[in-house]
């Protein structure tokens, strides 16, 4: 049942890559909801499908990848729109205006031969009926808000003239220039130093308070997720294995994978030179997806005869959703 404050609803999304060697189910039945003005962190290791899932929302998945099924519903002011199967005109409208995206490497997503300002002006004028001068003022104002010093001068700078942190700020300024209701940030701080990372995360929090947009933060770093997230989804091999309030997922994870991930992180203040609890084995190759629960070969609590045959469904555990057969019984006990 859709609640009033839901902004984006993803239901049973499947994005597959049809390769010569077989089909890679990068996103394999993901259900998620993003509420207005909240931050949802998507956490997982490389290959878990978090980036492909995010790109599917804006239909940015390149062939041979394609969306095989599912629904992505964006609840706009003027009613809901369906993004899977939307035509190009609608997609152009949605991109930047409703949903904007920031990537890990700003250098790869900015044009090298245009100034920062002209790129923002272009984005603004494509989506809104404003004059050049007004769009330029908007660009300067946005650069100022993301904390770029001397925005009146920097508006005419080329991307290579800015440092990594400043480039990411410029990218965020561009993404927010059309006041989207959702910002998708795909590992926005992974290429940055820890001090710059802290600045960018703080900036995102401040901008969210100012503009009220929702943020979908894709990250492999649980620490980063803890800094910004209201809600959190942990992904493994194309599925969401745990979804709930960030504070609860981080302080008391229920899914064995989420638990193991948290344990394997070196954390500040722990006595040094203690052994880390590593997760045994490794992420299986994409063509050899284990049967049953995909995590069972690496799981310490796997139940032979059950976890290797039965695919777990999403089970509500308290106010969370966990895809693990360990919690199957808890559900059955309920009326």
């Amino acid at each position: 049942m859709p609640e009033d404050d839901v902004l984006l609803e993803i239901e049973d999304l499947r994005t597959h890559f049809l390769l010569d060697d077989g089909v890679v189910c990068a996103v394999d039945g993901v259900d998620l909801r993003v509420r207005k003005g909240e931050t949802l962190a998507i956490v997982g290791e490389s290959g878990c499908g978090k980036s492909v899932m995010a790109r599917s929302i804006l239909r940015l998945v390149d062939p041979p990848g394609q969306i095989e099924g599912g629904r992505i519903t964006l609840h706009r002011e003027d009613g809901p729109v369906e993004l899977v199967g939307a035509d190009k005109r609608l997609l152009r409208q949605v991109r930047w205006r409703d949903i904007a995206m920031v990537f890990q490497e700003p250098m790869a997503s900015l044009s090298l031969v245009h100034t920062i300002g002209s790129q923002i002006v272009e984005a603004v004028r494509l989506h809104e009926n404003v004059g050049k001068a007004e769009a330029r003022e908007r660009a300067i104002d946005m650069l100022d808000r993301v904390g770029i010093p001397k925005p009146r001068r920097r508006v005419d700078a080329y991307p290579f003239e800015l440092s990594g942190g400043m480039r990411q700020r410029a990218m965020i300024a561009m993404a927010l220039s059309c006041r989207p209701s959702l910002l998708i940030a795909d590992e926005p701080t992974t290429a940055l130093d820890v001090t710059t990372q802290a600045q960018i995360l703080e900036l995102l929090r401040d901008l969210q308070a100012e503009f009220g947009m929702a943020i979908m933060m894709i990250t492999h770093d649980l620490g980063v997720a803890a800094q910004v997230a209201d809600r959190m989804a942990v992904m493994y091999l194309g599925r969401v294995v745990e979804y709930g309030a960030a504070e609860q997922v981080l302080s008391a994870p229920r899914h064995p994978y989420a638990q193991a991930l948290l344990r394997s992180m070196p954390r500040l203040g722990r006595a040094s030179r203690t052994r880390l609890a590593a997760i045994k084995g490794m992420v299986p190759p994409p063509f050899a997806r284990p049967a049953g629960c995909t995590f069972h070969p690496r799981c310490d609590s796997a139940m032979t005869g059950r976890c290797d045959t039965v695919t777990p469904s999403r089970i509500p555990v308290g106010d969370r959703e966990v895809s693990c057969l360990l919690y199957d019984d808890e559900q059955e006990e309920r009326p």
């Binding site: 820890v194 001090t195 990372q197 802290a198 649980l222 980063v224 803890a226 504070e247 302080s251 954390r267």
Partner: peptide, 14 residues
Amino acid sequence: ALLSAVPDPDPAAR
């Protein structure tokens, strides 16, 4: 400053 910038996964630490 470096130490204080490290993101801590403990939600209470935030």
